[in-house]
Amino acid sequence: MEELFDGLLNDRLGFVVWAAVAFLILLVLLGKFAWKPIMGAIYERERSIEDALLKAEAAKEEMTRLTTENESLLKQARAERDQILKEAKQVKDHIIGEAKAAAQAEGNKIIEKAKMEINNQKAIAMADVKNQIATLSVDIAEKILRKQFADQQKQNELVTDLLKEVKLN
């Protein structure tokens, strides 16, 4: 047993010290100049990536919101347009109807007036015609009478006829 451990420290202590010193120096140097910046950079980048992803997500949501809003606006606009068109059509129909009615009434009125005028004219004309016929008749009668009564004989005959007719009842 003593043989086994004989000189162990003398031969090995030096190497252990060398190894420990080498490792500790490596630990300090790498820790300060490698791991610290590397871990920091990795952490920083991971955070920025996470940030970017979150932002992208938010942008996507915003986009969806905007799209929905746009769509609803469009829908609303369409409905409004339809409403306006409908109203316009109604107004148009109404105006046309009104115009038609007015025209009809006016026409009727004009026709009525024309009829009245015609009747008036007709009456005047008829009166005129009547007058002329009367005058003409009188003239004709006068002429016939004149002709008839030119001859004395005839006058007598007539008187006799008339007298015959007029019987003293």
Binding site: L9, N10, L13, F15, V17, A19, F23, L26, L30
Partner: peptide
Amino acid sequence: YDFSVTKNVIALWVACLLLM
């Protein structure tokens, strides 16, 4: 006490240097 720079000490240095 043997504090010699042995083959393994050099190898450790090489490894440390490489890592650095």
